[in-house]
Design a protein around this nucleic acid. Structure first.
Length: 430
RNA sequence: GGGGAUAUACCAGAGCGGCCAAAUGGGGCAGACUGUAAAUCUGCUGGCGAAUGCCUACGGUGGUUCGAAUCCAUCUGUCCCCA
């Protein structure tokens, strides 16, 4: 084996809990592990990133990672962490989503690397043929309701109620593990710490069906990683516009990079460990540098660059970094005029239609209705933002809501509008 | 099936028949300070408007009243107790 997977996770702070004996198993032979992904959206988001990195490290350590796309379980909905019954998704949508997710995983994992190549499986493939009776005999027989009720994910819902369908979710997920154990010799399931209950249901099913653990060869293992949280207690992975997606059509590379760049100092060390492959000494080095000159934000930049490169590619990433640099530079206007076209295209450009523009009486209209509420969601908000000194046009603060829209255009067609310190928009107005 | 409670803005949660676009807290946004950070302080936080203004809103529908988030009836949802 090439590296110690568990050790790696430990120093990165990515190890929350595991079933004892796992280290011995991993040391003994190449082991196969899987993590489930929920196909309720056509793209993964950075909330999934920690799980992906888990698989990545696993593969780097010489083991074989499998990503399970929960086509079947996605049709049901995991009650963990939810307080309301979930909406069903159609089979078609789930299929499409799976394809998108698979493509994104290919950016992280090696699918053509010999014995320990990554694989993607879809549990719909083995569940679709399953009859209800078959399932009851194959899976349901092996767990008691008492056991299932004792899971936190279920207990937390007893007050508000949960359907039989959602109650059965853990059986499905547990059976996945068993199925993979039998067909692909998968010995380990990993996931976020909220998945512990679901995962151990799987190991329990395997144990009951295959006999218990004196014979080590029969054992199945669970490993969880702590949920990534922010220092201020808010959820990690959301920007103000919602989830941060890996799909550039849903979250532009520029926004993606900005998300990482804006990480708070207190959060950065942890995020670097979880989301990048920098070594311990590399990270500690950077931290030392950061401590000396925090305003340079070395850590944030390293984090942003690393993750953006992995997700969107080195070229795009460079352009995005350059574009970001331009927008926040003192001489942004000159630099914008001089920037190359490909870099310019990475900027957050919004096309204002001539009709919409014609409707605009003043700046207030432009930044609300004129750009389809991109910048401000209502005229009132726009007016308040302008009066509050938040809005700048071509880097010059404007605080007259009635200002005419006769600003000089950049490159003959663009206006640079800033809202606050962090948000910049380029409006193409012709 | 019987009885009781409750329904307020993004969330939590006040609210006397007129002084209620609705206390307070959280969240969100912005300003100042900085480093596109954190903490702190300040302002904003239904829509339109330059505005003293207008419109829409306190689960739905009707009603009482000069006037209703506030009273009455009814419906719906949720929760609790009994069978």
């Amino acid at each position: 084996m090439q590296g110690n997977f568990i050790e790696e996770l430990r120093w990165r702070g990515m190890l929350h809990d595991m079933i004892p004996g796992l280290e011995e198993q991993l040391a003994k032979e190449m082991t196969t592990a899987y993590i489930g992904f929920d196909p309720t959206a056509p793209s993964l988001h950075i909330g999934n990133l920690a799980a992906i990195m888990l698989l990545k490290h696993f593969q780097l350590a010489g083991h074989k990672p499998i990503a399970l796309v929960g086509g079947a379980t996605g049709m049901i909905g995991d009650p963990s962490g939810k307080n309301a019954e979930r909406e069903f998704l159609s089979e078609d949508i789930l299929r499409e989503n799976q394809i998108g997710i698979q493509k994104q995983l290919e950016k992280f994992l090696d699918f053509h690397g010999g014995a320990n190549s990554a694989e993607v499986v879809n549990n719909y493939d083995w569940f679709k043929e399953f009859s209800f009776l078959g399932f009851l005999r194959e899976a349901g027989k092996f767990l008691t309701v008492n056991y299932m009720m004792s899971k936190d994910s279920v207990k937390n819902r007893l007050e508000t109620g949960l359907s039989f369908t959602e109650f059965s979710y853990q059986l499905l997920q547990g059976y996945d593990f068993y199925h993979l154990y039998k067909t692909k010799n998968v010995r380990l399931q990993m996931g976020g710490s909220d998945q512990w209950g679901n995962i151990t249901t799987g190991t329990e099913i395997i144990r009951r069906k295959e006999g218990s653990g004196e014979d080590e060869a029969d054992r199945a293992f669970a490993l969880t990683t702590p949920l990534v949280t922010k220092v201020d207690g808010t959820k990690f992975g959301k920007s103000e516009s919602g989830n941060v997606w890996l799909d550039p059509a849903k979250t532009s590379p520029y926004e993606f990079y900005q998300f990482w760049l804006n990480t708070a100092d207190a959060d950065v060390p942890r995020l670097l460990r979880v989301f990048t492959l920098f070594t311990q000494s590399e990270i500690e080095n950077m931290e030392a540098q950061h401590a000396e000159a925090p305003h340079l934000r070395i850590l944030q930049k390293a984090l942003g660059q690393e993750v953006t490169t992995r997700v969107h590619g080195a070229n795009i990433c460079e352009e995005v970094i350059e574009a970001s640099g331009i927008l926040f530079a003192k001489d942004a206007i000159e630099q914008l005029e001089a920037a190359s076209e490909s870099v310019f295209q990475q900027l957050p450009i919004y096309q204002v239609s001539p009709e919409a523009l014609a409707e605009c009486q003043n700046l207030t209209d432009l930044i609300s209705v004129g750009c389809n509420h991109l910048i401000c969601s209502s005229k009132g908000e726009a007016r308040k933002a302008i009066q509050g000194n938040a809005i700048s046009v071509n880097k010059v603060k404007v605080n007259n809501p009635q200002a005419n829209i006769d600003f000089p255009l950049l490159r003959n067609k663009y206006l640079l509008i800033g809202n606050g310190k962090q948000k910049n928009y380029i409006l193409a107005i012709r």
